[in-house]
């Protein structure tokens, strides 16, 4: 450090120095960073347990310096339920993609939310199955081209993209639902605040907290990282609007 300067931002210590395998510009790594910053700020590194999904983030345990558990495809919500019920004093989160949470694991997710299990979902919605080569997912936009719908998604065959945050916000026992993104520094700062709020609500025992991240996938969308930000703004945000869908009522002082 140079003389007369002070450090104001650095990589969180809870994020290991291993190089992440994610493609350039992928929001997975941005969300890993925010999650670890929040855990460092709240000083809960030794009592946080994360549940990894199957998908691009399957190796998240290599990067996050906390206790992690790997779950079968889509079953992260069920595994997190078990961990939280046995160790209720721990902070538990499940980190899932859209192929995991919204396709194969929909039943586990919806029932965990219906029971109001007191853990946090981090849901990365990039609209395709990124890990396996960019196939169509339930959240693929209408007309979006993927390897399994090369002429664009037809809603007559495959239905409309699923809005998980809106669906989850209907459950009474769910405490907090927000959709965020990381396409600009402002949205990225909001994403970090949302993750922090969700973890804090979990610590207060208010119920299920659910953060959906409208994410990108430059490799799967066959574009550059910059073009993926443009696609997010022009195509994704009109259909998947950002914002808070449910939050706990403020207690009177």
């Amino acid at each position: 450090m140079k003389d007369g300067y002070k450090l104001i931002y650095k990589r969180p210590k809870t994020l290991l120095s291993t190089r992440m395998h994610y493609c350039p510009g992928c929001f997975h790594s941005t969300i890993h960073k925010f999650l670890m910053e929040v855990i460092e700020e709240l000083e809960i590194q030794d009592k946080t347990i994360g549940v990894c999904p199957v998908g691009c983030s399957v190796f998240a345990y290599d990067y996050l310096d906390i206790d992690m558990q790997e779950a079968a495809h889509g079953r992260a919500a069920a595994v997190a339920t078990g961990i939280k019920r046995i160790l209720p004093d721990r902070i538990v989160f499940s980190y899932q993609g859209d192929g995991d949470l919204a396709a194969i694991g929909t039943a586990e997710t919806l029932h965990a939310c219906n029971r109001g299990e007191n853990f946090t979902f981090i849901f990365i919605n990039n609209g395709i199955y990124g890990m396996t080569g960019g196939q169509m997912a339930p959240t693929t936009l209408e007309g979006q081209k993927t390897t399994t719908c090369p002429y664009g998604r037809e809603t007559a065959d495959s239905g409309m993209p699923m809005k998980m945050a809106e669906i989850i916000s209907q459950f009474e026992k769910v405490a907090y639902v927000e959709r965020v993104s990381c396409d600009t520094p402002a949205n990225a700062r909001k994403a970090k605040r949302a993750i922090k709020k969700a973890i804090e609500f979990q610590m207060q025992g208010l119920g299920t907290t659910f953060i959906e991240v409208a994410s990108n996938c430059p490799s799967g969308w066959k574009c550059t990282p910059e073009e993926s930000l443009k696609w997010l703004e022009e195509q994704v945000f009109p259909y998947f609007p950002l914002g808070v869908f449910k939050e706990p009522a403020k207690r009177r002082q």
Partner: peptide, 16 residues
Amino acid sequence: CAVICPDAAITVYKKA
């Protein structure tokens, strides 16, 4: 830049 950086590669220093 540091907030948006996906790989946490950036460290920021400010004049004291």
